[in-house]
Amino acid sequence: MDAEEFAYAAFIVGFVVTAISGLCYLALPLWPRVAYRTAATDAGATMTVTAPGLVPGWIGPAATANSWLALAVLSASIAARWVAGGRPPLSNMWEFTVAFGWAILLFYTLFELRSRLDVEDWPGARVVGAVVVPVALGMFAVSLIYFPSDVRPLVPALQSSRILGAHVTTMVLSYAALSVSFGAAVLYLVQGSGARRFDRLPAGDTLEVVANRSVLIGFPLLTIGVALGAYWAYSAWGRYWGWDPKETSALVTWLIYAGYLHARNLRGWKGQGSAWLLVAGFGAVLFTYFAVNLWVSGLHSYAGV
């Protein structure tokens, strides 16, 4: 088995483990609330009785453990692919998308680790994984279904490994951080800011804090990523900005999150309005990532499939 084959095999294992992790996270909020049990009566007959359905205690730790395991296996896959290609595996849609999903897992597991320490209603905050981990799983599924996985040589414009690696890495990490803000925002919209609608979900205020913290990490990374992209464009094409569809779409994404940071300080927008902005922001992330590369002709089209 050569490095490329190992990378693919490890990816498949990582995909499966991520799926198991995602199922465990989804079980946290969706586990049945009522359990039906069969009980014997004094008369010797049986009857069905109901009891509160409690989430088994092992589900949460299993979700966390599997997310760490998936991260480790996928890290090995990416490292093997790096060896196979002799360059950072960040040069086509397969590699971008796998790195995107990997970064989501990385960011989420670190977020969870940190949240144990300072989020007030931990372990409730772990439910954010029920939204975020399936997003990572979706990235892996899209890679498997749509993009060829073979290692290919780089076109000349992509042969600037340091700048390219830095640009793509920061973009992927920023998108990963923003995916956590998306997960928290979705749960916030479900939970609401006032009365706690669902006791298995974290409080709205906690989700709002989680979402904002993720943006405070993702937004500077997005800024650095766009700036590095501009520097790369200046090296390769002689101009730092050309209103290429990818550039324009990345700017739109940046503006939406800039709008969020401003809106969060306004009383009328804090809460629901800000959360919707985060959902729109992540929609812009996905649009920039998939739609512009695959369906809009531009200078980033060579990075398609």
Binding site: P245, V252, L255, G259, V292, V296
Partner: peptide, 13 residues
Amino acid sequence: LIGCLVVAGLLAV
């Protein structure tokens, strides 16, 4: 203003 620029950017894409 940011909202206007977002709409304009989307149109450009």
